[in-house]
């Protein structure tokens, strides 16, 4: 049906921590100056991408997945949703400290098919910019006490990042993207977030965003284990491929093209390029 790539129109999400870099750095037409996320490859009901070209132009990626499974080598008995979601995030301010459930918890407690394991490639970072990744509690009791007493400086594990850094964030990992970072996120297609701490911020009408402490404590892995991944590099013609992660839910690469790469083969069911 498609003898060409499927180009997609991103879906933008306004966030209290969003900014303008999705326009200034990526030339997207953004809806306002607090645009936090571009969902660039998405079949999620909260922000599906629309196909721009070919016979399915105007349809959503979810429509294509449901009605034209052959485009993804989807087996006939696979009734699950499109598995992946790719976003670009502009953290003009700190994102909340949060954690996501795994598949089992998401299914049993939230009634959705996927939990959320994600990974980040840092596109740009202002000097000194930091992420939260993991925590310092050694037991669940210690974690509960630190959260309830709001000992954030003791509890949270902060890491400085620069452009080109890669971070794997399995479900159950406490995390936050810090101010001044633009990140590309590849994740399971899920929108379930348990917010732990939001810096006591209020929106334009004085409301704080909801916290979900009980569920967050329940799904957080203790103790935190850093997920260092081996990265392999290979060069074919003038294309250098660095494998960033190969895990249960996705494999992610950085490709650097510096000339010509011919007769590349599509060895996977389908490939997402962002």
């Amino acid at each position: 049906m498609y003898k060409e790539p499927i180009f997609l129109q991103p879906k933008f999400q306004e966030r209290i921590w969003g900014g303008k870099k999705l326009h200034t750095e990526f030339n997207y037409t953004i809806p306002n100056d607090q645009t936090g996320e571009a969902w660039v490859i998405s079949a999620h009901p909260n922000g599906p991408s629309v196909i721009k070209n070919g016979p399915l132009a105007g349809k959503t990626l979810a429509d294509a997945w449901n009605d034209h499974g052959e485009l993804f080598n989807k087996s006939k008995d696979n009734h699950e949703e499109y598995p992946l979601l790719v976003k670009i995030l502009d953290a003009n301010d700190d994102l909340s400290v949060q954690v996501h459930p795994n598949d089992t918890y998401a299914c049993e407690v939230e009634g959705v098919p996927y939990g959320k394991t994600e990974c980040w490639y840092v596109l740009s970072a202002e000097p000194g910019a930091e992420l939260v990744i993991g925590h310092h509690a050694k037991t669940k009791d210690e974690l509960t006490a630190m959260v309830e007493n709001q000992n954030w400086d003791t509890f949270l594990r902060r890491v400085k990042v620069t452009a080109g850094d890669f971070v794997y964030v399995p479900s159950g990992t406490i995390h936050a993207i810090g101010k001044g970072i633009v990140i590309l996120e590849t994740q399971q297609s899920s929108d379930i977030t348990y917010r732990v701490y939001d810096y006591d911020r209020t929106d334009s009408v004085g409301n704080k965003r909801e916290l979900h402490l009980d569920r967050a404590i329940e799904v957080t892995e203790v103790p935190h284990q850093d997920a260092d991944k081996e990265q392999s590099v290979s060069t074919v013609h003038q294309l250098t491929v660095k494998k960033l992660v190969e895990e249960k839910y996705f494999t992610v690469y950085h490709w650097h093209l510096f000339g010509q790469a011919s007769e590349l083969k599509l060895n996977q069911d389908f490939l997402q390029l962002v």
Partner: peptide, 22 residues
Amino acid sequence: HFILPHGLSDYDLSGDAEFIVS
């Protein structure tokens, strides 16, 4: 950003560019 769908024939790339591929 785009998807290369199943069954696509071999393809060529030329230029100076970086992608995140998944």
